[in-house]
């Protein structure tokens, strides 16, 4: 596949980038709304998270006296890390903005850099909860990162390509002709779903809504954040959710536009698939209790072995 850019591709890539970023809080709000409807509550406005973000941006920042320059730079670094990874995803148009950058190893370790700065931030302000949250975050990342690498390597081995864009190009071309395995995307989807729940602090692993000391993982890290920085952290967590949902939607049923004419249909399908995954996540979150912290390795080890099985399948060339 040719990934050299011209002006038209670049323009459409920027358009796609802006649309995905703008949609990210909508999906988080949709999950929240669906969960509240399951509980029998009326629920928030689906666009509530945009208002929250706007409100937080207007507020001032309070930093502790212990804080060093890490606290000032790391919100921007985390936001830019997730923006770069989201910019690599060919969500509905194949020539994504950072398509020439989208090597699979780069994606995994860029996400790792995000976690690194998140935990540095948690330690920097000297709060007792920050260290606790950072420790738990590393615990889960350490368990889930091997499976993420295996998922990408499975796709790379099966399609014999190294770039994310070329992998999904391969999958789409072969899936339409019926030459693509059903088993590999299906079990990758199971594994990726578990990873998405764990990485985005969703319910069986962590509860994003409470500030209870026993349960909080992600919330404990950003407990000290306020004002603009809190807004940036929340927005980057929506973008991270969007990254995982986009990957799932690309694996299960890729429909990516190659020409500008196909874009409206592809965009509609993209939003539909994302809404379906939001629905699934809200069902899982409503029906399951939160796990004990030390039962989480059970779930994550299952995700790891499932992606290992997928890798064996791809090596055998099903």
């Amino acid at each position: 596949m040719d990934i050299s850019l011209n002006y038209e591709k670049l323009l459409l890539g920027i358009l796609q980038f802006i649309i995905i970023i703008a949609l990210a809080p909508f999906f988080a709000g949709l999950i929240h709304k669906l969960k509240q409807n399951f509980r029998g509550q009326k629920g928030i406005n689906m666009f509530q998270f945009y208002f929250n973000f706007g409100k937080l941006l207007r507020k001032g920042v309070v930093l502790s006296d212990e804080a060093s320059y890490i606290s000032i730079i790391s919100p921007y670094i985390i936001l830019s890390v997730y923006l770069i990874v989201l910019g690599m995803m060919p969500a509905f148009y194949i020539y994504s903005l950072f398509s020439r950058l989208s090597d699979i190893i780069v994606i995994v370790y860029t996400l790792g850099a995000g976690v690194f700065f998140l935990t540095l931030y948690s330690l920097d302000q000297g709060s007792p909860f920050g260290g606790l949250g950072g420790e738990r975050e590393w615990f889960f990342t350490m368990l889930s990162e091997p499976s993420l690498i295996f998922i990408f390597i499975t796709l790379a081995i099966y399609s014999r390509k190294g770039m994310l864009v070329s992998i999904f190009d391969f999958i789409q071309k072969n899936a339409l002709g019926g030459h693509f395995s059903i088993a590999i995307p299906f079990i990758l989807l199971i594994s990726l779903f578990i990873l998405g729940l764990s990485e985005n602090a969703r319910i069986p692993i962590d509860n994003p809504e409470t500030h209870l000391e026993l349960t909080m993982i992600h919330e404990a890290i950003i407990l000290e954040a306020s004002g603009k920085y809190l807004g940036i952290f929340e927005y980057s967590s929506y973008i991270k959710l969007s990254i995982f949902l986009t990957l799932m939607s690309l694996i299960i049923f890729p429909y990516i536009a190659y020409t500008p004419i196909d874009i409206p249909l592809a965009l509609g399908l993209y939003i539909f698939k994302m809404a379906m995954f939001c629905f699934m996540i809200s069902i899982v979150e409503s029906l399951n209790p939160k796990m004990r912290l030390f039962r989480a390795p059970n779930l994550l080890s299952i995700a790891f072995i499932i992606s290992l099985i997928a890798m064996i399948l791809s090596i055998r060339g099903v």
Partner: peptide
């Protein structure tokens, strides 16, 4: 393909 899925 379906048989593979079931066996997996």
């Amino acid at each position: 393909r379906l048989a593979e899925l079931f066996s997996v």
